[in-house]
Design a protein around this nucleic acid. Structure first.
Lengths: 363, 363
DNA sequence: GCAAGTAGCGTAAACGTTTACTACAGGGAA
DNA sequence: TTCCCTGTAGTAAACGTTTACGCTACTTGC
């Protein structure tokens, strides 16, 4: 009954499935399937008839049915920390582009740094049967890895964590960029440098901080513990962290941040405190989001190419999904480098000492 | 053969489908299906057994199979202009939250203002058989609407376009906010106000501009055509547009922008030209993205609640998907209102005239 | 005490593909 | 000529659900 009413009622569009195409091309549904999947053993004559029918009818295969029988959903999961942080949309955009170009759709999950949300994301991805997952949260909990491993889902992530059977890691060369930045500051004459990190339970935040500390040491400088603040990679966190530093009796002359959003928050705190950048304070961010060029003054920051990151992540995932056992698991490092703009300058030690003295005297 | 090797090989996880659950709960698969779908006619005793089996086995239904037979994919499409513009991630976040809470997953498409990409997005959504689509591009091409209408997919969008059978529109009350902004500027003493619009082929960009012009008129001010620049809603576009204005022999004393990204671009152009905001120039944005609070100085802007937008969009879509013919098509307006921060001040007419005269004399 | 209604479970038929297997035709070698 | 092999096409069985339909057994009204 349902199928018989072809186009009697004009409001109900005639559903065109593989059978309709087969009928019109005067072949079996198997041949249609083989043709559209580019199986080589199809007679070019029949193939041509099939393609004509396909375009005539504007047919496209039902994704769900395909996924059901083949077991492949053609879906890639992408888990980010916070979609609200401009770095991630830039990443998503690249990721999506590459994925779509390869016929994959992407499912986005934003964890907001919460374990519970993370758990939920993983669950959703598993339920939708993603073919692979990129965890770009800069700090993955191990249980997530296990979760995906159980279902044999390939995973890529960025982290200095040990590689597991089914998970590959994209290594970021934090050292290069951070070393450059510390040297830049040292050359300008800065001796007192603070650091606002991301949430330290995230491995990559911890790693960036450790790298900073190492670079400080290489430059012959000592770290002052009270200038090492734990932020949360957000605008608000950056502002609050800087306010904490400003409440201290002794100030650093420069601050480095674990990401650009933090740095923008810091700029704001400085603005509110009527301190000029870079005259009174030098500032360096991390990520080099597009916006960094547009802050006032433009932000000196360490560039990590999200384009690179996205491409390498998708490539890695896709290469592992290929039927042929492509063993090219060559994971190259993601580079970082300093981009000098206008938030770094000579240290204002003299002025700071002046400000500093009455403060310390008053306690 | 496939099914028989239950747990002989430890590396292959035993697939648990509805049959396994049924067996363990000692009921038929129909009862399992009915239980997990909360069909009321199932005996509480059996239901309890089923739920126990479900949790014991950590079972969850196969989404594809479900979608295939029921025809509902539990997928909502969300098409945005540009994921890179912070307004949209904020929107996406809200949208996702609501959707997930209702058991829906979302598919994101970013058009980048290109018709071709738009077409591709629509295609992707159709192929994945989304149950509904929210087009939040602030400027939809009619063909998109038709595309979805053919497949009976409900659509919501923001636009002053005529409503179609299956598409609902979310009306934004541009007037309220823009009127407030123009009045604010007028009260401060500004008589010469420029406007940087979005791409004018987008209906909402056109609409914002028209509303601005109307409000100018209400305030008894005249528009100067050369101060009406067509931008593109991006940082770069905002900067370029402002540079065009600064190249003019006569300057306005204030500029309003069609979105916040444009305004941030303008701020940058002003910074480069060594002009101070708001001393030399007043500036108003539109959207009130979170970042607006963090620009230097903080941006006066017109707030449009993306939370509202997202919630109303999802609600609208979902209400139309409910089996019961919920006819509550009451679409309330999205409000806008001015948020005064620090980019607006008294006009510097005197100074501008000073700058202006030598320029005009030199030609 | 019996007919009729009903609550609730199970069987089986979809949903639209992919793909293993079968079948058939044609060509080359013995 | 016969046999076998190869190259293609078609048939049918999955994939994991939902749901229409039928059946049983119990309740209820007379």
């Amino acid at each position: 009954m349902k199928r018989s009413q072809k186009s009697a009622d004009s409001s109900i569009p005639p559903k065109i499935d593989i059978r309709v195409v087969a009928a019109r091309a005067r072949v079996s549904i198997a041949t249609v399937s083989r043709t559209i999947n580019h199986v080589p053993s199809v007679d070019p004559v029949l193939a041509a008839r099939v393609w004509k029918a396909v375009t005539d009818l504007d047919y496209f295969p039902n994704t769900q049915a395909r996924a059901l029988v083949s077991g492949k959903s053609k879906l890639l999961g992408l888990i980010v920390s916070e979609i609200t942080n401009p770095f991630f949309p830039e990443l998503i955009q690249e990721f999506e582009q590459v994925a779509v170009a390869h016929g994959y759709e992407i499912l986005i999950g934003s964890t907001n740094y919460e374990t519970k949300t993370m758990e939920l994301c993983a669950r959703r991805m598993l339920e939708r049967k993603v073919d692979g997952v990129a965890i770009m949260t800069f700090g993955i909990e191990d249980f997530l890895l296990d979760r995906f491993a159980v279902d044999n889902v390939p995973v890529v992530f960025i982290d200095p964590a040990p590689t597991r059977p089914l998970s590959n890691v994209l290594a970021v060369d934090y050292y290069a960029g951070i070393y450059e930045a510390v040297q830049h500051l040292a050359v300008l004459g800065h001796r007192k440098i603070g650091f606002i990190s991301g949430p330290l339970r995230l491995r990559s935040a911890e790693s960036r901080k450790a790298t900073f500390l190492g670079c400080l040491h290489s430059a012959g400088l000592k770290a002052e513990p009270s200038w090492l603040i734990e932020g949360d990679h957000t605008l608000d966190g950056g502002r609050d962290s800087m306010q904490k530093i400003l409440a201290l009796p002794k100030w650093p002359t420069a601050v480095m941040c674990s990401n650009d959003m933090t740095a923008i928050g810091v700029q704001h705190a400085l603005f509110e405190a009527k301190l000029k950048v870079p005259d009174d304070f030098s500032l360096i961010g991390f990520d080099d989001i597009h916006l960094a060029e547009y802050t006032i003054p433009p932000l000196t920051t360490i560039r990590m190419s999200c384009k690179d990151l996205a491409h390498k992540a998708v490539d890695n995932l896709l290469s592992r999904l290929k039927p042929v056992g492509a063993k090219l698991e060559v994971i190259s490092k993601i580079n970082t480098r300093l981009v000098v703009r206008q938030t770094t300058g000579l240290p204002k030690d003299a002025l700071l000492d002046l400000v500093d003295k009455p403060t310390s005297r008053s306690r």
